[in-house]
């Protein structure tokens, strides 16, 4: 552990959790969002904590350390294409070299490129404190714009991304340019079938509301249906989203966001034979 004035540089996760439990500190992972304001905060520097940098996998999960940078995630052989696609359109190389998935998600911005993918893929988040660990779905971790369930003594340590069924994905991000673009609307979809039956029809919308939107009860409508059956309920399905999505206005209008969301959702279904 190195302490310089109000900055803490822990050597490992245990040290990091100890400080987090004892001091009022802001966890610092990549810094790319925090440093825009560059206030004189007390930082807990996590960017070199080995446990938080690790990317690994078991049979069920891809496990991404919260302080792994996007470049590291992009270079990891087991990273699914849907996540790579989102990272590819995230800012530019220098930012991807520093920015982390943990920071991106903890910021709790509906525009966060990686959050969208974690939402649609049912990714779980592992939180730890000196007292123990807990695992939450991302929907429960992000509680509002800029708000998370992270406790004052806790750190986000790892993402558990279920590996199954990620191949057939749909991803589209609307930014104002080809690089260095903050998402104006983003859509991610995952569609799976077993035999004739739909087993997953997940759709997530970024940059349209205070949090990434996902409607599990609407998705449930499609589960177990055959494609012809799904076609029969398509307009009802779309109407539900049309009613439920009430976008915020920002650099682009709410109307624009809404149209893009609905266009992409419909195209997602069409692409999958619905």
């Amino acid at each position: 552990m190195v302490i310089v004035e109000n900055g803490y540089i822990p050597a490992d996760l245990a040290e990091a959790l100890k400080i987090r439990g004892e001091q009022t500190v802001i966890p610092y992972a990549g810094g790319t969002d925090l440093m825009v304001d560059a206030e004189d905060h007390a930082y807990l520097f996590l960017n070199k904590v080995p446990e938080l940098k690790r990317i690994s996998e078991d049979e069920t999960y891809l496990k991404i350390g919260a302080a792994a940078t996007f470049t590291e995630i992009l270079n990891y052989p087991g990273t699914p294409e849907i996540l790579k696609a989102a990272i590819h359109y995230l800012a530019a190389p220098a930012i991807r070299n520093m920015a982390t998935a943990g920071g991106n998600v903890s910021n709790a911005s509906p525009k966060a490129d990686s959050s969208l993918i974690f939402y649609v893929s049912d990714t779980l988040l592992k939180l730890a404190s000196a007292k123990g660990e807990r695992i939450l779905p991302i929907e429960d971790f992000i509680t509002g714009r800029g708000k998370t369930a992270l406790q004052a003594d806790e750190l986000l340590v790892e993402f558990l991304m279920p590996k199954k069924g990620l191949e057939n994905y749909y991803y589209e991000k609307v930014g104002a340019r080809k690089a260095l673009a903050i998402s104006r609307v983003a859509f991610a979809g995952l569609f799976n079938m077993e035999g004739e039956r739909i087993t997953r029809c997940a759709a997530a919308f970024g940059s349209v509301a205070d949090v990434v939107l996902r409607f599990r009860d609407f998705e449930a409508m499609m589960i177990g249906l055959t494609l012809p059956e799904a076609k029969a309920v398509k307009s009802e399905f779309l109407a539900k989203y049309d009613q439920a999505i009430v976008p915020i206005r920002g650099r682009v209008s709410a109307d624009y966001r809404k149209h893009v969301c609905m266009n992409l959702l419909e195209d997602f279904l069409t692409q999958n034979g619905i």
């Binding site: 900055g7 810094g31 440093m35 825009v36 560059a38 930082y43 520097f45 960017n47 520093m98």
Partner: peptide
């Protein structure tokens, strides 16, 4: 890296 968004401590 963009040195403007890197904290010295990191």
């Amino acid at each position: 890296a963009n040195s403007c968004v890197v904290a010295l401590g990191s």
